[in-house]
Amino acid sequence: MNFLGNVIWIIFGGIFIFFEYIIGGLLLCLTIVGIPFGIQCFKFAIVGLAPFGVRITHTASATGCLSTVMNIIWLVFGGLWIALTHLLFGIVFCITIVGIPFGRQHFKLMNLAFSPFGKSIS
């Protein structure tokens, strides 16, 4: 079922989400300061390409409060808009019964958009 969901996701827009996050990640990686944020965009690209069957988990890191500071910077400079976009698409997809699984995937991406630092994809 995950395979079929991912194929339908890719056909109806998942490939565009993937390329947007890849391009954004490459642009962010052009500067040394933007590399950690670019890596998070690549994390979004992986989930954006095939979100069905992907689990996002919170990881305890030994970096202390650095991930919290990076999440705040992320949220202020674009993460909020990404999260709101995924919220809007999630609500639109959940209007119909057929779209509910796709709306749930957008809600998963919205959760990741709020705080990508300190989370891993499995």
Rank of each mutant, 00 (worst) to 15 (best):
40 Q>V: 14
33 V>G: 05
1 M>H: 14
34 G>D: 08
68 T>V: 11
61 S>W: 04
36 P>C: 06
20 E>D: 15
1 M>D: 02
34 G>P: 02
79 G>C: 05
15 I>A: 14
11 I>E: 06
120 S>V: 04
68 T>P: 00
30 L>D: 00
23 I>L: 15
90 G>N: 05
112 L>K: 00
105 Q>S: 02
112 L>S: 01
122 S>Y: 00
116 P>C: 03
45 A>G: 10
67 S>V: 13
87 L>G: 02
95 I>W: 12
111 N>C: 03
112 L>F: 09
54 V>H: 04
97 I>A: 12
86 H>M: 03
54 V>S: 05
14 G>Y: 08
3 F>V: 02
57 T>S: 12
27 L>T: 06
97 I>C: 13
99 G>D: 00
79 G>I: 07
76 V>Y: 01
45 A>T: 03
70 M>G: 02
4 L>Q: 13
86 H>F: 12
16 F>W: 15
14 G>T: 06
23 I>S: 13
52 F>Y: 00
31 T>H: 07
100 I>S: 11
21 Y>A: 12
33 V>H: 07
46 I>E: 11
29 C>T: 14
88 L>K: 11
4 L>I: 15
25 G>A: 09
44 F>N: 05
20 E>W: 09
63 T>W: 05
49 L>R: 14
12 F>A: 07
52 F>L: 06
110 M>R: 10
121 I>F: 07
109 L>S: 03
72 I>G: 01
71 N>W: 02
48 G>D: 08
80 L>K: 04
67 S>M: 13
12 F>K: 06
52 F>A: 05
78 G>L: 10
51 P>S: 14
43 K>G: 08
115 S>F: 05
26 L>K: 07
